[in-house]
Computed example of a mutant assay.
Amino acid sequence: MLTKSVLTLVETTQILDVARAEAEKNKWAVAIAVVDDGGHLLALLRLDGCAPIGAYIATEKARTAALGRRESKQYEDMINGGRTAFLSVPLAGTLEGGVPVVVDGQVIGAVGVSGVKADQDAQVAKAGAAVLNS
């Protein structure tokens, strides 16, 4: 039988804290979502000034990264590169800003961020994921 690491409240809080610090350092009003490896929401934080839709988008970016086992930007690049048929896939977060959390080569969850420019969202998500990524 295989065993795997899972995100607990401790790790989820660490991810949120680091991502929040990165966003606040840059004065970015964002929403930050952390999901488990099945895309189920573990935590959501919407900073003051972030539009309410940011919470939805951040969650979907995280879900996409967790279920796809890759950064959500890869799906955006695929679609922008002409593979428009991929738009029919039942993922709502195919935009940059979702980053998987990887431990011992296994995706155990993901972080999604929304609220600023796509590369800035990704910067915040990557900061949070880096707490555990190995």
Rank of each mutant, 00 (worst) to 15 (best):
K4W: 05
K4R: 14
S5G: 06
V6Q: 05
L7D: 08
T8M: 05
V10W: 02
E11N: 12
E11V: 10
E11I: 12
T12N: 06
T13L: 13
T13C: 08
Q14L: 13
I15V: 15
L16D: 04
L16F: 07
L16H: 07
D17H: 07
V18K: 12
E22R: 11
A23M: 09
K25N: 11
W28N: 03
W28H: 12
A29H: 12
I32Y: 02
I32S: 01
I32F: 01
I32V: 07
A33S: 04
V34S: 02
V34Q: 04
D37I: 01
G39N: 09
G39R: 07
H40A: 10
L41Q: 09
L42Q: 14
A43N: 02
L45P: 06
L47W: 00
D48W: 06
D48Q: 09
A51M: 13
P52E: 10
I53G: 02
A55M: 04
Y56P: 01
Y56W: 10
I57Q: 03
I57T: 13
T59V: 05
E60M: 14
K61W: 02
A62R: 02
R63I: 15
R63Y: 12
R63H: 13
T64I: 11
A65W: 00
A66C: 09
G68E: 08
R69W: 01
S72K: 10
S72C: 13
K73Q: 14
K73D: 12
K73E: 15
K73L: 15
K73G: 13
Q74G: 11
E76F: 02
D77K: 10
M78E: 15
I79D: 04
I79C: 03
G82R: 03
R83T: 03
R83L: 06
T84I: 14
S88M: 12
V89Y: 09
V89G: 02
V89F: 11
L91G: 00
A92Y: 05
G93R: 01
G93N: 05
T94M: 15
G97T: 15
G98W: 10
G98H: 10
G98F: 07
G98R: 06
V101C: 09
V101Q: 08
V101K: 08
D104N: 09
D104F: 00
G105T: 07
G105D: 07
V107Y: 00
I108F: 00
G109Y: 00
V111Q: 05
V111M: 04
V111K: 03
G115E: 01
V116D: 10
V116S: 13
K117W: 11
D119W: 10
D121S: 08
Q123D: 12
A125M: 03
K126E: 11
K126T: 14
A127S: 13
A127I: 10
G128N: 08
A129G: 03
A129S: 09
A130W: 01
V131T: 11
